[in-house]
Design a protein around this nucleic acid. Structure first.
Length: 278
DNA sequence: CAAATTTGACCTGA
DNA sequence: TCAGGTCAAATTTG
């Protein structure tokens, strides 16, 4: 495991850098209020960013627990189209036929082992199934806000190792808008992510999965809520496009502007000083 | 009474 | 063919 950490880390950092670059592009688009058109649309970039976070979390999750099979990381082509398969949602030919579905094969997913099934999101159970040769049944959940278009799903199965831990597989990301204090981002801001990576760097791979769970549910700190006039425009745009959201955080709050280069991160490790928030 | 859960039936893909 | 994923009616819960 240890010997695999460096290439693994490179991959992880590469994934995060990709997310950062897409975020910058998106930021530029939003400043210019360009949502459609061009080689990369805002939606396209958003999908890439989400895909990047999904991949990163998948890697962290696998690396962390040491007992996880790496989640089926979506194929990432050179142009970064990680979410291609995920976007092709199951579309039953006849909607009212029960059980008519397509099995997820390449849809984005990640796995985590946790002491609790709680993850800050509101889930609604829609099925339970006895799995062959498994001691405990598998439970199926979808986002409570499915009616609003959120397609996030998760499967929960209790581990058979005698502990009160759960193998949780997530499919898709939440597109619901921060309802009831839900966290719609895997890492709510880059600061959380930095702390996590820094922690990783300093103390090896002995983190419990609950650490990941905690970070996953992290909230945005007020310290980066301030904004200057130069970004008011993009925030205005987002505010108008999210008119119904109860979220009080701006897009910029969630993402910030990450500055360290890939090489510097690899060479020097990660420090909060490396990141400049606008 | 609305929302959530349970559970058996149904359906698909391997 | 059958294991596993989803549906939806029935039931429970708040």
């Amino acid at each position: 495991m240890e010997e695999a950490s460096t290439p693994y880390k490179k991959r992880l950092i590469s994934e995060l850098i990709r997310g950062r670059d897409c975020t910058k592009k998106l930021q530029n688009l939003l400043r210019r209020k360009v949502v459609h058109g061009g080689p990369e649309s805002a939606e396209d970039l958003m999908m890439k960013i989400l895909g990047s976070f999904s991949n990163s979390l998948s890697m962290l999750s696998s690396w962390n627990s040491g007992e996880l099979c790496p989640a089926p990381v979506p194929t990432t082509s050179s142009d970064g189209r990680t979410w291609e398969s995920g976007e092709s949602e199951k579309t039953p030919a006849v909607k009212d036929r029960r059980g008519c579905y397509k099995r997820r094969k390449t849809e984005d997913s990640w796995v985590k082992i946790a002491n609790t099934v709680e993850d800050g999101f509101a889930w609604r159970k829609y099925g339970q199934k006895v799995i062959l040769d498994a001691k405990f049944p598998r439970c199926y959940y979808r986002c409570t806000h499915k009616s609003e278009g959120c397609k996030a799903l998760k499967q929960v199965q209790k581990l058979e190792d005698g502990t009160e831990r759960f193998h949780i597989t997530y499919f898709g990301s939440h597109t619901c808008q921060n309802i009831n204090n839900n966290t719609t981002q895997i890492f709510s801001n880059s600061e959380d992510l930095c702390f996590y990576l820094l922690d990783f760097e300093n103390s090896g791979i002995n983190h419990s999965s609950s650490t990941l769970s905690t970070i996953t549910n992290a909230h945005i700190t007020p310290s980066i809520e301030q904004e200057d006039d130069s970004n008011a425009q993009s925030d205005d745009y987002l505010a108008s496009s999210n008119r119904d959201t109860s979220s009080k955080y701006s897009w910029k709050d969630m993402i910030g502007n990450l500055e360290p280069s890939y090489d510097n991160i690899l060479k020097d490790g990660i420090s909060m000083d490396d990141f400049k928030f606008q």
